Amino acid sequence: MSRILVTGATGNVGRHVVTRLAEAGLRVRALVRDPARARLPEGVEVVRGDLTAPETLAPALDDVEIVFLVWPGFAAKTAQPVIDLIAAHARRIVYLSAHVSDTDEPVTFHQELERSIRHSGLNWTFLRPGGFAANTLGWADQIREGVVRWPYGRASRALIHERDIAAVAVHVLTSAGHGGAAYALSGPERLTQAEQVAVIGEVIGREVRWEDQPPQEARERLLAAWGDATFVDGALAAWSTFVDTPEEVTDTVEKLLGRPALTFRQWAEDHETDFR
Protein backbone atom coordinates (compact mmCIF):
# COMPACT_ATOMS: atom_id res chain seq x y z
CA MET A 1 0.00 0.00 0.00
CA SER A 2 1.19 3.51 -0.75
CA ARG A 3 1.44 6.00 2.04
CA ILE A 4 -1.45 7.26 4.16
CA LEU A 5 -1.24 10.98 4.87
CA VAL A 6 -2.68 12.08 8.19
CA THR A 7 -3.41 15.78 8.64
CA GLY A 8 -4.07 17.21 12.09
CA ALA A 9 -1.53 14.62 13.18
CA THR A 10 -0.78 16.16 16.57
CA GLY A 11 -4.42 16.79 17.51
CA ASN A 12 -6.69 14.82 19.84
CA VAL A 13 -7.83 12.42 17.11
CA GLY A 14 -4.95 12.61 14.63
CA ARG A 15 -2.30 11.59 17.14
CA HIS A 16 -4.20 8.38 17.90
CA VAL A 17 -4.72 7.69 14.19
CA VAL A 18 -1.00 8.06 13.48
CA THR A 19 -0.06 5.82 16.40
CA ARG A 20 -2.49 3.05 15.44
CA LEU A 21 -1.38 3.07 11.79
CA ALA A 22 2.29 2.97 12.82
CA GLU A 23 1.67 0.09 15.24
CA ALA A 24 0.02 -1.81 12.38
CA GLY A 25 3.22 -1.44 10.35
CA LEU A 26 1.65 0.78 7.70
CA ARG A 27 3.42 3.55 5.83
CA VAL A 28 2.09 6.66 7.52
CA ARG A 29 3.09 10.25 6.84
CA ALA A 30 2.12 12.94 9.33
CA LEU A 31 1.51 16.51 8.20
CA VAL A 32 2.46 19.02 10.91
CA ARG A 33 3.30 22.69 11.10
CA ASP A 34 6.35 22.18 13.31
CA PRO A 35 8.10 18.79 13.01
CA ALA A 36 10.40 19.60 15.92
CA ARG A 37 7.46 19.66 18.32
CA ALA A 38 5.45 16.77 16.86
CA ARG A 39 6.57 13.98 19.25
CA LEU A 40 5.09 11.20 17.12
CA PRO A 41 6.00 7.50 17.23
CA GLU A 42 9.30 6.29 15.86
CA GLY A 43 9.07 5.26 12.23
CA VAL A 44 6.43 7.83 11.31
CA GLU A 45 7.45 10.09 8.46
CA VAL A 46 6.85 13.64 9.65
CA VAL A 47 6.60 16.42 7.07
CA ARG A 48 6.06 20.13 7.39
CA GLY A 49 2.95 21.63 5.81
CA ASP A 50 -0.05 23.84 6.46
CA LEU A 51 -3.55 23.25 5.09
CA THR A 52 -4.16 27.00 5.09
CA ALA A 53 -1.16 27.39 2.76
CA PRO A 54 -1.82 24.97 -0.14
CA GLU A 55 1.51 25.76 -1.76
CA THR A 56 3.23 23.85 1.10
CA LEU A 57 1.39 20.57 0.49
CA ALA A 58 2.66 19.06 -2.75
CA PRO A 59 5.73 17.32 -1.19
CA ALA A 60 3.53 15.83 1.54
CA LEU A 61 1.19 14.32 -1.06
CA ASP A 62 3.90 12.61 -3.11
CA ASP A 63 3.19 8.85 -3.34
CA VAL A 64 0.10 9.16 -1.13
CA GLU A 65 -2.91 6.93 -1.81
CA ILE A 66 -5.22 7.89 1.06
CA VAL A 67 -5.64 11.12 3.03
CA PHE A 68 -7.18 11.49 6.48
CA LEU A 69 -8.34 15.08 6.50
CA VAL A 70 -8.87 17.12 9.66
CA TRP A 71 -9.53 20.72 8.76
CA PRO A 72 -7.97 23.41 11.02
CA GLY A 73 -10.60 25.76 12.42
CA PHE A 74 -13.65 26.82 10.50
CA ALA A 75 -12.34 29.00 7.67
CA ALA A 76 -13.19 27.61 4.25
CA LYS A 77 -11.13 30.06 2.22
CA THR A 78 -8.35 27.64 1.22
CA ALA A 79 -10.43 24.46 1.31
CA GLN A 80 -11.17 24.12 -2.42
CA PRO A 81 -7.52 24.46 -3.55
CA VAL A 82 -6.55 21.85 -0.97
CA ILE A 83 -9.24 19.41 -2.12
CA ASP A 84 -8.16 19.94 -5.73
CA LEU A 85 -4.56 19.22 -4.79
CA ILE A 86 -5.47 16.08 -2.87
CA ALA A 87 -7.57 14.86 -5.81
CA ALA A 88 -4.59 15.35 -8.14
CA HIS A 89 -2.42 13.02 -6.03
CA ALA A 90 -4.53 10.62 -3.94
CA ARG A 91 -7.31 8.12 -4.62
CA ARG A 92 -9.24 8.13 -1.36
CA ILE A 93 -10.09 10.63 1.35
CA VAL A 94 -11.55 10.14 4.83
CA TYR A 95 -12.81 13.45 6.17
CA LEU A 96 -13.39 14.11 9.87
CA SER A 97 -16.55 16.14 9.50
CA ALA A 98 -19.23 16.81 12.14
CA HIS A 99 -22.69 15.54 13.01
CA VAL A 100 -24.58 17.42 10.30
CA SER A 101 -27.48 16.68 8.01
CA ASP A 102 -27.22 17.14 4.27
CA THR A 103 -30.26 19.41 4.50
CA ASP A 104 -29.28 21.56 7.51
CA GLU A 105 -29.73 25.31 7.14
CA PRO A 106 -27.85 27.53 7.29
CA VAL A 107 -25.11 25.60 5.53
CA THR A 108 -22.15 24.90 7.80
CA PHE A 109 -18.47 24.83 6.93
CA HIS A 110 -18.46 21.03 7.20
CA GLN A 111 -21.32 20.78 4.71
CA GLU A 112 -19.45 23.03 2.28
CA LEU A 113 -16.31 20.93 2.54
CA GLU A 114 -18.26 17.69 2.19
CA ARG A 115 -19.85 19.03 -1.02
CA SER A 116 -16.43 19.92 -2.41
CA ILE A 117 -15.17 16.43 -1.65
CA ARG A 118 -18.23 14.78 -3.22
CA HIS A 119 -17.48 16.59 -6.49
CA SER A 120 -13.70 16.02 -6.40
CA GLY A 121 -13.63 12.59 -8.03
CA LEU A 122 -12.09 11.08 -4.89
CA ASN A 123 -13.41 7.93 -3.26
CA TRP A 124 -14.70 9.52 -0.05
CA THR A 125 -15.90 8.61 3.43
CA PHE A 126 -17.20 11.10 5.99
CA LEU A 127 -16.93 10.59 9.74
CA ARG A 128 -19.58 12.68 11.49
CA PRO A 129 -19.04 12.62 15.26
CA GLY A 130 -21.30 14.52 17.62
CA GLY A 131 -19.90 16.14 20.74
CA PHE A 132 -16.29 15.35 21.64
CA ALA A 133 -15.72 14.30 25.26
CA ALA A 134 -12.41 16.17 25.02
CA ASN A 135 -14.28 19.47 24.82
CA THR A 136 -15.02 19.14 28.54
CA LEU A 137 -11.31 19.79 29.15
CA GLY A 138 -12.37 23.43 28.82
CA TRP A 139 -13.88 23.09 32.31
CA ALA A 140 -10.61 21.90 33.88
CA ASP A 141 -9.75 25.12 35.73
CA GLN A 142 -13.28 25.43 37.13
CA ILE A 143 -13.31 21.77 38.15
CA ARG A 144 -10.15 22.33 40.15
CA GLU A 145 -11.98 25.15 41.94
CA GLY A 146 -14.98 22.90 42.65
CA VAL A 147 -17.67 24.78 40.71
CA VAL A 148 -18.42 24.79 36.97
CA ARG A 149 -20.44 27.79 35.77
CA TRP A 150 -21.68 27.15 32.24
CA PRO A 151 -24.98 27.53 30.39
CA TYR A 152 -27.57 24.80 29.86
CA GLY A 153 -26.71 22.25 32.52
CA ARG A 154 -29.67 20.11 31.37
CA ALA A 155 -28.34 19.84 27.80
CA SER A 156 -28.04 16.10 27.18
CA ARG A 157 -25.21 14.82 25.00
CA ALA A 158 -23.77 11.51 23.79
CA LEU A 159 -20.12 12.53 23.94
CA ILE A 160 -17.58 10.38 22.12
CA HIS A 161 -14.07 9.44 23.19
CA GLU A 162 -11.42 10.62 20.72
CA ARG A 163 -9.92 7.12 20.79
CA ASP A 164 -13.15 5.75 19.31
CA ILE A 165 -13.09 8.31 16.50
CA ALA A 166 -9.49 7.37 15.77
CA ALA A 167 -10.26 3.64 15.85
CA VAL A 168 -13.11 4.10 13.38
CA ALA A 169 -10.87 6.26 11.17
CA VAL A 170 -8.15 3.60 11.10
CA HIS A 171 -10.70 0.89 10.33
CA VAL A 172 -12.07 2.91 7.42
CA LEU A 173 -8.59 3.86 6.17
CA THR A 174 -7.40 0.26 6.12
CA SER A 175 -10.43 -1.69 4.90
CA ALA A 176 -12.66 -1.71 1.85
CA GLY A 177 -16.35 -1.04 1.45
CA HIS A 178 -16.63 2.46 2.91
CA GLY A 179 -16.76 4.52 -0.27
CA GLY A 180 -19.65 6.99 -0.23
CA ALA A 181 -20.46 6.32 3.44
CA ALA A 182 -21.23 9.04 5.97
CA TYR A 183 -20.91 7.57 9.48
CA ALA A 184 -22.68 9.31 12.37
CA LEU A 185 -20.60 8.62 15.49
CA SER A 186 -21.46 9.05 19.16
CA GLY A 187 -20.75 7.73 22.60
CA PRO A 188 -22.92 4.91 24.01
CA GLU A 189 -25.00 6.99 26.43
CA ARG A 190 -26.47 10.42 27.08
CA LEU A 191 -25.44 12.57 30.02
CA THR A 192 -26.46 16.12 30.78
CA GLN A 193 -23.64 18.62 31.10
CA ALA A 194 -24.26 18.73 34.86
CA GLU A 195 -23.98 14.92 34.97
CA GLN A 196 -20.73 15.05 33.02
CA VAL A 197 -19.26 17.35 35.66
CA ALA A 198 -20.45 15.01 38.42
CA VAL A 199 -18.78 12.03 36.72
CA ILE A 200 -15.48 13.90 36.44
CA GLY A 201 -15.74 14.81 40.12
CA GLU A 202 -16.30 11.16 41.05
CA VAL A 203 -13.31 10.06 38.99
CA ILE A 204 -10.95 12.58 40.60
CA GLY A 205 -12.44 12.04 44.06
CA ARG A 206 -13.66 15.58 44.54
CA GLU A 207 -17.15 17.07 44.76
CA VAL A 208 -17.77 19.46 41.87
CA ARG A 209 -20.95 21.55 41.67
CA TRP A 210 -22.73 22.83 38.60
CA GLU A 211 -24.11 26.36 38.39
CA ASP A 212 -26.11 27.44 35.36
CA GLN A 213 -24.57 30.54 33.78
CA PRO A 214 -26.77 33.04 31.92
CA PRO A 215 -26.26 32.46 28.17
CA GLN A 216 -25.44 36.12 27.48
CA GLU A 217 -22.71 36.09 30.11
CA ALA A 218 -21.32 32.89 28.62
CA ARG A 219 -21.44 34.43 25.15
CA GLU A 220 -19.18 37.29 26.21
CA ARG A 221 -16.70 34.89 27.77
CA LEU A 222 -16.69 32.58 24.74
CA LEU A 223 -16.26 35.48 22.33
CA ALA A 224 -13.14 36.50 24.22
CA ALA A 225 -11.82 32.93 24.06
CA TRP A 226 -12.89 31.86 20.55
CA GLY A 227 -13.15 35.17 18.70
CA ASP A 228 -15.77 33.93 16.20
CA ALA A 229 -19.29 35.22 16.88
CA THR A 230 -20.91 32.84 14.39
CA PHE A 231 -19.30 29.82 16.01
CA VAL A 232 -20.12 31.03 19.53
CA ASP A 233 -23.77 31.67 18.69
CA GLY A 234 -24.00 28.30 16.94
CA ALA A 235 -22.59 26.50 19.97
CA LEU A 236 -24.96 28.23 22.37
CA ALA A 237 -27.92 27.48 20.11
CA ALA A 238 -26.93 23.81 19.93
CA TRP A 239 -26.57 23.48 23.71
CA SER A 240 -29.98 25.09 24.11
CA THR A 241 -31.49 22.60 21.65
CA PHE A 242 -30.03 19.62 23.53
CA VAL A 243 -32.07 20.54 26.62
CA ASP A 244 -35.33 19.46 24.99
CA THR A 245 -33.94 17.34 22.14
CA PRO A 246 -31.01 15.25 23.46
CA GLU A 247 -28.16 14.40 21.15
CA GLU A 248 -28.61 11.22 19.14
CA VAL A 249 -26.98 7.99 20.31
CA THR A 250 -25.79 5.83 17.43
CA ASP A 251 -24.44 2.27 17.35
CA THR A 252 -22.03 2.96 14.50
CA VAL A 253 -18.87 2.54 16.59
CA GLU A 254 -19.99 -0.89 17.78
CA LYS A 255 -21.07 -1.98 14.29
CA LEU A 256 -17.75 -0.98 12.73
CA LEU A 257 -15.39 -2.06 15.50
CA GLY A 258 -17.23 -5.05 16.97
CA ARG A 259 -17.14 -3.64 20.50
CA PRO A 260 -19.16 -1.06 22.44
CA ALA A 261 -18.17 2.58 22.27
CA LEU A 262 -16.21 3.85 25.28
CA THR A 263 -18.25 5.55 27.99
CA PHE A 264 -17.79 9.09 29.27
CA ARG A 265 -16.56 7.68 32.57
CA GLN A 266 -13.87 5.74 30.72
CA TRP A 267 -12.87 8.96 28.98
CA ALA A 268 -12.71 10.82 32.31
CA GLU A 269 -10.53 8.06 33.78
CA ASP A 270 -8.18 8.32 30.79
CA HIS A 271 -7.92 12.09 31.40
CA GLU A 272 -7.96 12.11 35.19
CA THR A 273 -4.63 13.93 35.48
CA ASP A 274 -5.87 16.75 33.21
CA PHE A 275 -8.38 17.75 35.89
CA ARG A 276 -6.10 17.59 38.93
Rank of each mutant, 00 (worst) to 15 (best):
D244Q: 15
V64W: 01
T125N: 05
D233L: 10
R149Q: 11
L223Q: 03
A169T: 04
L51A: 01
A198R: 11
A224V: 05
D34A: 14
T108I: 04
R37Q: 14
L51R: 05
L223A: 02
I66N: 13
P260F: 08
A133S: 15
K77W: 03
N12I: 09
A166R: 00
G146I: 09
D164G: 00
V253F: 00
V199S: 11
A181V: 07
D233S: 05
A224C: 00
A224T: 00
L236H: 03
A237R: 12
D62W: 12
W226N: 11
F109G: 07
R20S: 10
S156H: 04
E248G: 02
G227A: 03
H171I: 01
R115F: 15
A133V: 04
G8L: 08
L31A: 04
D244N: 14
R33D: 12
G43K: 06
G180V: 07
A166H: 04
A75S: 06
P106T: 01
G180L: 09
T125S: 12
D164H: 01
T7M: 10
P106Q: 06
T103I: 15
W150H: 11
L137G: 06
A24I: 04
R276M: 09
G179A: 13
R15T: 09
D102V: 13
D102P: 13
I160C: 10
L185M: 02
E217S: 09
R265D: 06
I117E: 10
P129C: 00
G146H: 07
V172R: 04
N123W: 13
E202Q: 15
E112Q: 15
Q213Y: 03
L262Q: 09
R37K: 15
R206K: 15
V67H: 01
R39I: 06
G121W: 08
R209F: 04
T273S: 13
R33Q: 13
W210L: 11
W267P: 05
L26T: 00
V199E: 15
R149N: 04
R154K: 12
D212V: 05
A90V: 02
G43N: 03
R190D: 07
T52N: 12
P35S: 14
K255M: 06
A24R: 15
T78G: 00
A79P: 00
S175N: 13
L262T: 07
E254R: 15
A79N: 02
G201D: 09
A176S: 12
I83S: 01
E65N: 05
A184H: 12
H119M: 12
D62T: 14
H178T: 09
A169H: 02
G49M: 05
R259V: 03
F275N: 10
R219V: 01
R20L: 15
L191N: 00
D62F: 14
I143G: 03
L256V: 05
T56M: 09
